[in-house]
Design a binder for these strands. Structure first.
Lengths: 214, 214
DNA sequence: GTCTATAGAAGGATAGAC
DNA sequence: GTCTATCCTTCTATAGAC
């Protein structure tokens, strides 16, 4: 029991968490430059001195928050089709799950912030990629390899195919959402994008003769 | 002769152009928040008072510059394959031209700035989309329709197919470039992405039996 | 029209009381 | 540990000389 306390981070201070929560919300919504330390302290309900007791600078606070957000920004961790043999159903489930995740406000905000600040904070671009698209490419690529060996797919280069799958999902709807264009995508549009992605993917990488349509 | 002068914009002041050039470079490189009016005036070699004589505020200067940059950010304007009948060659040329354009520093910078400031300046997201991906989808979609009617392609929904083409080009390499990851893409990598894009596109939308490989 | 100089506000960071 | 109050810098924007 007492070991549990030892396993905790040394950052269990409640005020520290208040600062982190407030700063996260503000940075995600407005980006680095538009948020002041005054605004963070006010939103957290603490003084600026307390804020600086936990974080030595605005830069460090920002990098801590966005880096941690990137590390938690995993999309495919629970994609384990296991004994599923219906490839189209598996791909459709994965595409739907992935695109809906990408279109959530938080992942959209993380991507916006990382892209805009990747010049000033290069490590954020790396963290975002390695924990997001990089993980997807690895996990999905391994699955594509297994499916190819099982004869259910014919994927010559799993890394390229995984990148293409991501690219197909990130076209159209997602690009418009990234640019903040209204109105937000409807469920029907999301399903249509998912279906179109699975269609083109299976036409290209399905076993010969599996050129089924929606 | 004298009509020429009348045709000119009322913005032919050389100092105004100096300000525009300097501000464009700075905003592209560092974004809105990190650039001060002092820095712009210094880089342009004019005083701040002169700067404010031409642009009433930092917001207006920024919106003017980025909006104009979006309007000039056209990618497919000179894509006119004309009497070309080799679809694979046409698609390869278009894909290579488009991806190389997207990977240039200026389009990358425009996209970064627009994405990061689309919350504060919603009209920029719209201008970027309508002059960039929107134009591509329309022009390329019309071409796909013509090729389909000519029997050289079989594209059921040109708008979706055009979005997918863009998405395929924007996967992998381009995503990493957007995040500022080093090293920059090599010519070989660009060619490989182009080839992979054309391959999957033709497998899905080529006329039956044209499943050629690279 | 253009400059120098500066006003007025806001930002990041800190000293010192409690 | 936390707060109030403040320092110093930098920012946007402008007044006034030439």
């Amino acid at each position: 029991m007492s070991e549990l306390a030892e396993l905790r981070q040394d950052s269990e201070s409640p005020k520290r968490q208040l600062v982190l929560d407030a700063a996260t919300a503000l940075f995600m919504a407005q980006g680095y430059g538009a948020v002041s330390m005054d605004a963070i302290a006010r939103a957290a309900g603490v003084s600026k001195a307390t804020l600086y007791a936990y974080f030595s600078s605005k830069d460090q606070l920002f990098a801590t928050i966005i880096g941690e957000a990137c590390r938690q920004n995993i999309v495919v961790s629970n994609f384990l089709p296991g004994d599923e043999t219906d490839v189209r159903a598996s791909l459709t489930a994965l595409a739907g799950q992935t695109l809906r995740f990408l279109l959530e406000e938080r992942p959209l905000a993380i991507q916006r912030v990382v892209i805009s600040e990747s010049v000033r904070f290069p490590e954020l671009g790396r963290a975002f990629h390695d924990n997001g698209p990089g993980v997807f490419r690895r996990v999905f690529g391994e699955w594509l390899t297994a499916e190819t060996m099982a004869g259910r797919l014919a994927v010559p280069d799993p890394a390229i195919a995984a990148d293409q799958f991501i690219g197909l999902l990130r076209s159209g709807l997602y690009l418009r959402a990234t640019l903040g264009l209204t109105p937000p995508p409807t469920e029907a549009e999301i399903d249509a994008t998912v279906a179109a992605t699975v269609d083109i993917f299976l036409k290209a990488y399905g076993p010969s003769g599996s050129h089924a349509t929606a």
